[in-house]
Amino acid sequence: MTTSSNTKPPWELLSRGILSENPIFRLALSMCPAVGISTTVMNGLMLGVAVLLVQVFSSVTISLFKNQIHPRIRIPTYTLTIATWVTVIDLVMAAYLPGAYAKMGIFIKLIVAFAIITMRLEMFACKENATDSFWDGVGMGLGFMVGMVVIGFVRELLGSGAILGYDVLGFKPLLFFILPSAGFFVVGLMMAFFNWVELVYKRRKGIQL
C-alpha cells in the first residue's frame, strides 16, 4: 500500500478500490450492512451510493484541509467530518427517497461508524491531493457498492427469483436466502469461494513455475 507518487492515473486508483482492495471481500470491513440489508440488489445499490457519496465528500474535504489539521486531533476531525456528511446524506435521502430510506432503517446513519471510511482518510486522503483523493474515494465507494450489489444479486435471485424487483426465474429457488439471517451464510460462502479461487490460481501458478 504505497501512496507515494502523486501522478497516479485515476483508473489505477479506481480498480484498486474495486478489485485488489475491495472493502467487503478483501479487507472484510463494514460487514454489518453487507449482512443486514443486502436482501435485494436495490437495497445494496442505495446504500452503496450513500457510502460512495460520504466517502468521496469526506476524502475531498480532508485532503483540502489536510494542512490545517493538527496531527494530534486528526482522528476526531475525521469523525466529525464523516458525521457531518452522513447527516447531509441522511437528511437528503429522508427528504427525496422516503421509501428506500425507510427500508434502510438505521444503517444510513450508521455509515458514520464504518471503519472503511475512516481508514481511507487516515491512509490516503490526509497525504494526497484532492484529485487523487477524489478518485480513491470513488474507487473505494464503488468497491463497496459492487460488493453490496453482488451479495444482493445472489440473495434476490435465489430468494425470490427476481432481479431489481423483476421476476426473472419465474419460481423461487430457495426462499431461505431472503431471510435476514441468510446474509451470514451468503457472505461466508462467498468468502470461501474467493479463497478457493485464490487457492486454485496459486496452485496452477505453482505447477507452471
Binding site: 472484510a28 439471517s181 451470514f184 451464510f185 461466508g188 460462502l189 468468502m191 470461501a192 479463497n195
Partner: peptide, 21 residues
C-alpha cells in the same frame, strides 16, 4: 482449507442467527 478463518465463522454466526429467530 478454503473455509478456514472468517468464512466458517460467518456460517456459524448464521446458524446462531437462525437459532435466535
Amino acid at each position: 482449507p478454503t473455509f478456514k478463518g472468517l468464512p466458517i465463522a460467518f456460517i456459524v454466526a448464521g446458524q446462531f442467527a437462525l437459532a435466535f429467530l
